[in-house]
Design a protein around this nucleic acid. Sequence first.
DNA 1: ATGGTGGTCATACCA
Length: 268
Amino acid sequence: MPFSIATWNINSVRLRMPLVQRFLSEYQPDILCLQETKCPDELFPADPVKELGYEHVLFHGQKGYHGVATFSRRPLELCEKRRFCGIRDSRHLSATVEAGGKRILLHNFYVPAGGDEPDPEINPKFRHKLDFITEMEAIRADNGDGASSILVGDLNIAPLETDVWSHKQLLNVVSHTPVETEGLTRMMDKGGWIDLMRRHIPPEEKLYTWWSYRAREWDVSDRGRRLDHVWSSPDLGNALAYVSVLKEARGWDRPSDHVPVIATFDLD
DNA sequence: ATGGTGGTCATACCA
């Protein structure tokens, strides 16, 4: 049984609902996780996605900033809207779903971007980002309850040299500094997570999910970064069939600066 | 070294 899950930083769900509808209609993932919805819960546009068959809609939003949402064609049970670092930001939502005889705990994350200055002593946003990924070490792939796990989202870190257009030129740029990439890798290893994008696409290959709005002709210069991620527990890693990065979506009308990533599993 | 674009909400702030 095929089972697919997509993640996409939408950068305003209300402004880009037409793009969400287009994506769901054309690609029909079983589940879509959005980040940067920038929408308070009382104003969340759930009806348009329900009409497309995504009857199960969970969201954790706030006014103006951040915000995550998870849509599903099959029943979702809300698990937690977790807050990190003692700050009331809407950056996480977890839910459980059944697929192929497995119970899957699904985490949807929007990790802080971290500001411009990569020094935690002088930039509180960078300090917050580092503290956030440390606190994320509590999120494990195996919780000893027999459930599988998936973690997706905009993690705002490009861990591998091939996850950025120029490793050397970005070593001191927030998203690719050693303290961040090592922190993310430590969290992934400690939690027993598998990087599904890199299981399917060899680590030697350049792979990006984000291209800045500030570069005109983003596709000619191709100065991208892999900021969006799909991780799973090892059992689901073994069931992975395909990963697709939808680069064409960066060229859609009034696009997000991130593109969707879709992982497809072959379950029993 | 600098500024480039885009979203929110109406002013700076954030990415």
